[in-house]
């Protein structure tokens, strides 16, 4: 059997370019590769991706395996699984990382089972141990109430999906050198059991919420569906999405797609603005991984102030209008 070596990650594409999380994955990969004394490589699947491959080298990747095939333009669980299985068998990396994204979760998990190994999802920390060659992987569990540190059993490919916005993105440096290795793979269309019939974009806000950088979220204290329009405008001005607590969803003000919490979406924005949200455990489980939480609430004893980084005790109806005014002016 081939000696396994190297740290590899799957680079995802977005709007014909590298997805935003690639620089974070490169950063996580470089860290582990450094600790284990290994080289960092990446896999890129799609079509018309030569430029993206070059960008990966700028992110510190030494070898980029490129599978350029129009049949692989869009993610298809079976065809991507087949090509990734081949690559993992050929390259036999010690560590293989994917983003904790819709694609990464689907592909990574099934790939782990196919490769007879395990995968730790949604990792918020990765530490390579040079003595054992194992990576200690930390992930939130029980709705974020606890963290668990795991390793993959020795001798198996160590797989993880990496939580978004944890690792500081690696700055791109185009003077870096690396190798681009083209990988030929034919998709046997007749063998596919799933058929993607149609794709609809921009229609589901819920998933966007999970990827949003800024979220303006409202609870019972917002008051009505009409009042949520104000929150929506702020979200739009800040380049983010609007979310809601279960109380707001149960009141029928917002669609359940946009519910943040234990029974809704688990979100990880840079900034989470919680308006009229008391901060029940159910809700905080969904947003506690936000980098900065800003709470606006009438009740100075609301539990949200125990979790927030910045707080305002007051009526959002008075505070938001001048704030909106300021950002509207910036837009002009």
């Amino acid at each position: 059997m081939k000696q396994s070596q190297g740290v590899m990650f799957l680079a995802e594409l977005q709007n014909q370019g590298l997805a935003e999380n690639c620089a974070e994955l490169a950063s996580a990969g470089l860290k582990i590769a450094g600790q284990l004394g290994e080289e960092l490589s990446a896999v890129l699947i799609g079509t018309g991706i030569a430029e993206s491959a070059q960008e990966l080298i700028g992110l510190g990747v030494k070898k980029v395996y490129v599978v350029d095939n129009p049949d692989l333009t869009y993610y298809h669980s079976e065809s991507y699984l087949t090509v990734m299985t081949r690559i993992c068998q050929d390259i036999s990396p010690k560590v293989f990382l994917l983003g904790h994204t819709v694609l990464g979760r689907d592909l990574g998990t099934r790939l782990a089972f196919r490769m007879n190994t395990g995968l730790i999802p949604n990792c918020v920390d990765l530490e390579g141990d040079p003595d054992t060659g194992l990576v200690q992987m930390t992930r939130p569990i029980y709705g974020g109430k606890a963290h668990g540190i795991y390793t993959i059993e020795s001798g198996r490919m160590q797989m993880a999906t990496v939580a978004p916005k944890i690792f500081e993105p690696t700055p791109r440096d185009d003077s870096r050198q690396g190798e681009i290795i083209s990988y030929t793979h034919e998709v046997d269309g007749a063998s596919l059991k799933l058929q993607v019939v149609e794709r609809f974009e921009d229609s589901v806000e819920g998933v966007k919420l999970e990827a949003a950088d800024v979220i303006v979220s409202g609870g019972r204290g917002v008051g009505s569906a009409e009042d949520f329009e104000v929150l929506k405008e702020l979200a739009k001005l800040l380049g983010g999405c609007v979310g809601a607590s279960r109380a707001a969803v149960d009141s029928g003000w917002m669609h359940s797609n946009l519910q943040v919490g234990l029974t809704g979406k688990l979100v990880t924005p840079n900034v989470y603005i919680a308006i009229g949200i008391s901060g029940a455990l159910q809700h905080m489980a969904g947003c506690s991984r936000a980098k900065t939480i800003i709470a606006i609430n009438l009740d100075h004893e609301a539990p949200i102030f125990k979790m927030a980084h910045f707080g305002v005790v007051g009526d959002w109806r008075e505070i938001l209008p001048p704030l909106l005014e300021r950002y509207r002016a910036l837009r002009c």
Binding site: T117, H147, I149, Y150, E153, A295, M307, A308, H309
Partner: peptide, 16 residues
């Protein structure tokens, strides 16, 4: 195939 080394409650900066 995976080994749990430790479960712990993460520290949270609650200084608002």
């Amino acid at each position: 195939r995976t080994k749990l080394l430790k479960l712990f409650v993460p520290e949270r900066n609650t200084n608002c």
